[in-house]
Write a protein that binds this DNA or RNA. Sequence first.
DNA 1: CGCAGATTTCAGAGATCTCTGAAAGTTTAG
DNA 2: CTAAACTTTCAGAGATCTCTGAAATCTGCG
Lengths: 150, 150
Amino acid sequence: MVLSEPAERLALALTEGGMQRMTARVLAALLFTDQETMTAGDLAETVGTSSGSVSAAVKSLTGVGLIERVPAPGSRREHFRMREYAWATLMSGQNRLVKLMMDVADQGIAAAGADTPGGRRLTEMRDFYAYLWQRLPELIDNWKAARAGR
Amino acid sequence: MVLSEPAERLALALTEGGMQRMTARVLAALLFTDQETMTAGDLAETVGTSSGSVSAAVKSLTGVGLIERVPAPGSRREHFRMREYAWATLMSGQNRLVKLMMDVADQGIAAAGADTPGGRRLTEMRDFYAYLWQRLPELIDNWKAARAGR
DNA sequence: CGCAGATTTCAGAGATCTCTGAAAGTTTAG
DNA sequence: CTAAACTTTCAGAGATCTCTGAAATCTGCG
């Protein structure tokens, strides 16, 4: 078993968004598979990589909430699958960056003084990210609500 | 002249968001300066880097619309400054990635078939990014409108 | 308790990316 | 047109990141 060409293309897109290459390929495998869940062995075979890389990838993907371990009674292997709302979760994670931008802008204003040319530029920056920080969660919640209500 | 500590911190945040280190530091210099504009020489001195790195950085920043060349009559040097709505522009640029995700998901559905387990996962993905693709531009336009109306 | 299968860790090889500095190119004043 | 000031390009050094594979660890069955 090997990753299909569309799966590789999707992995590449995730990589552009900042995800590690192998992590993205493992996620693509879990997204495209026709099975309900995949074991670490399945993933290594599909992606064509070492067990070590798969271990690192599932650790990272589990950490950000994109996939989950599935209890598999009677098997000694771990099973994984994508979580519900994985993409909304991924987007929410990006929100951490928005907060960071807001914070560094605030620190800059404090250091430079609001009434300097630099302070004015930083204020525009801070206001923009504060706006996003308020609106992005609403946007994502609306999506979840719309989806749940179908 | 050297980059202040808050400026370095801001550059680091931009780096986390995917911007090159030197590019981020040049942008931070233009953001924090008390001058109206800076020349390539100013930037090299402030950031403490080579002329080559500054050249690459301003090329990249100009390309994505974050800064602009300012005509400077009577000077043989180029002057740069941050553009208005730079942060909104940066955000709009990220939208390209949203579109890409939508497209690769669509290609996946076409390849896998909508009625397979993989196809269903891909459909959820496609729908989510299609939603963002519609909503993010609205969000940014609203910001611009609110800002212009002050 | 001990073993077999499965997973995780980690050091080092290899690949990739970034930065520098010098040479080439460009622009404007004289 | 020439020269001086400034900017851009680019090859290679250096730094950083990623992946592999083998050893160590873990898990659950007999």
